[in-house]
């Protein structure tokens, strides 16, 4: 109990760090994921190939390796001195985007055929069909897998803690380096993650209930 009370500000900063890393990379992953899912179903072959390559490559790379790419290769390509927060968000966001893309793509395939056919017969273009007819209806089926992807992202953000980012894993590391009992810290950190996981799954359940429509 004392560990928590004595280092309340450290735990608070760690908690906020985890939340902010998760939120920023979730936003990046959602935007990229939807865009690349659009690429993968588009009528332009090179874009389709690019989408497939993106997903295959990122899904089969360990996240730790992506962090190494972000921290050692990216600064060489762009410019040195990018903050470790931005690099961490990029690695997490790119990795998660491939999973979001697959969720969105399988969501698109659950929308009844007639919807897209009706949109086409009204003369809508591909982008219009996707944006106004198919994607809004796919949202409902995408939400449950998206919820587990976001929970996974929260837990993956722990790896950013090993790369110079203040969050819950680095709290664990700092305090056990100071000689506190690892198991006691572990209980508090695990509790913080459980709270986050429950918050995210509750939020998505709320969204699902609001979007529920009888088909």
């Amino acid at each position: 109990m004392n560990v928590l009370l004595d280092h309340l500000d450290l735990f608070r900063d760690g908690f906020i760090g985890t939340v902010s890393l998760t939120a920023a990379s979730a936003a990046l992953a959602l935007i990229l994921g939807v865009l690349i899912a659009g690429f993968r179903v588009s009528p332009v072959p090179p874009l389709r190939a690019f989408g497939t390559a993106w997903v295959t490559l990122l899904r089969n790379t360990p996240l730790t390796l992506l962090f190494l790419v972000a921290f050692f290769v990216l600064p060489q390509v762009l410019f040195p001195g990018i903050s470790s927060y931005v690099l961490g968000v990029l690695a997490l966001g790119f990795y998660t985007s491939s999973f979001v893309c697959e969720a969105v793509r399988s969501g698109i395939s659950t929308v009844p055929l007639g919807q897209a056919e009706a949109a086409r017969s009204l003369g809508m273009t591909f982008v219009q069909t996707l944006r106004m007819v198919v994607l809004p209806q796919a949202t409902r089926t995408v939400l449950p897998p998206l919820s587990s992807i976001m929970i996974a992202l929260t837990k993956n953000s722990a790896i950013a803690g090993a790369f110079n980012n203040p969050e819950l894993f680095s709290v664990q590391k700092v305090l056990s380096d100071k000689g506190y009992n690892v198991m006691v810290i572990f209980v508090w950190v695990a509790l913080a993650y459980l709270v986050l996981v429950f918050l995210i799954s509750g939020f998505f359940r709320l969204l699902e209930r609001r979007m529920e429509v009888a088909r």
Binding site: P62, L63, T64, Y95, T96, F99, E102, A103, S106, P144, P145, S147, S148, I149, I151, A152, L153, K155, N156, A158, I159, V197
Partner: peptide, 15 residues
Amino acid sequence: AQKAAPDMGGGAGPA
């Protein structure tokens, strides 16, 4: 193979 395991590793949990 793919859809049933939406697990991303790194301590990710599937639905």
